[in-house]
């Protein structure tokens, strides 16, 4: 987060194996960001990111050489300040939950519009979480499957609060954070804090059901 230039232009690194798509993202982001590098496979990405330390890495979930998961594992232990935003056409829930659990701050689909992508990048750069409707759906689904908290585990981490569930539901319905806030009569900032708290739960929950849910699930 500290690496943001004074001008407010976040430094972006693109990890994506489709050259056409990389060009498309570059064009959509335009001058609003500073693209400091690109990579089309996991090992090169880890090396370059560790070297250039961007603010935000736009990470394709599916990559040759280990996938997004490998990139996260190769960077975060050394440089936890680097933020990852997963970006994918792949909607396999196990992949999505996997990158989130491995440390990505958000997940968006490639159908996202230019301005929305930019907004998501800014948000992640500021340390917030970014949930696409799909991710919100996955998370709701995953936590619904977990059911009652088991003994000996932190129930705080295994359950969504009713408010968090409401927020996620609205996001899943396609509402923006601003619209969610208006609908629930809370500020956009509060919405963000709810989402971040959900993300924390998702990443810290030790319940193996989460992983099992993700692998069991064959949907969409």
């Amino acid at each position: 987060m500290t690496g943001t230039e004074p001008g407010g232009r976040p430094r972006i690194f693109l990890v994506e194996d489709h050259a056409v798509f990389r060009a498309g993202v570059r064009a959509e982001l335009g001058d609003a960001v500073d693209v400091v590098g690109e990579a089309d496979e996991a090992a090169a990405a880890v090396e370059l990111i560790n070297e250039r330390l961007p603010d935000v890495v736009l990470l394709d979930v599916h990559l040759p050489g280990g996938g997004g998961h490998a990139v996260l594992g190769g960077v975060l232990p050394h440089h936890p300040e680097v933020q990852f935003l997963a970006l994918s056409v792949s909607d396999a829930p196990e992949d999505v939950i996997d990158v989130i659990r491995a440390g990505a701050r958000g997940y968006i689909t490639k159908t996202i519009s230019g301005p929305e992508l930019l907004q998501a990048v800014y948000r992640v750069a500021a340390g917030d979480a970014v949930f696409s409707p799909r991710l919100a759906g996955f998370v709701l689904d995953a936590f619904a499957q977990i059911g009652a908290p088991a003994q000996g585990l932190d129930p705080e981490l295994d359950q969504l609060s009713p408010r968090e569930r409401e927020v996620l539901r609205l996001i899943a319905r396609g509402y923006t954070y601003k619209e969610v806030g208006r609908d629930l009569s809370i500020s956009a900032k509060t919405v963000e804090s709810h989402v971040s708290s959900v993300l924390r739960k998702l990443q810290l929950s030790t319940r193996h059901e989460l992983t099992r849910w993700a692998t069991d699930r064959r949907l969409v």
């Binding site: 689909t109 159908t111 409707p133 799909r134 919100a136 759906g137 709701l140 689904d141 619904a144 899943a172 319905r173 396609g174 949907l219 969409v220």
Partner: peptide, 25 residues
């Protein structure tokens, strides 16, 4: 889920609009 998938494909094919589907359960 299967039904909604069909809905999505049908509407996308007939009306040239992207249908983004999110399902829980």
């Amino acid at each position: 889920a299967e039904g909604i998938g069909l809905l999505q494909r049908q509407v996308e094919a007939d009306h040239g609009i992207a249908v983004q589907v999110v399902m829980v359960g």
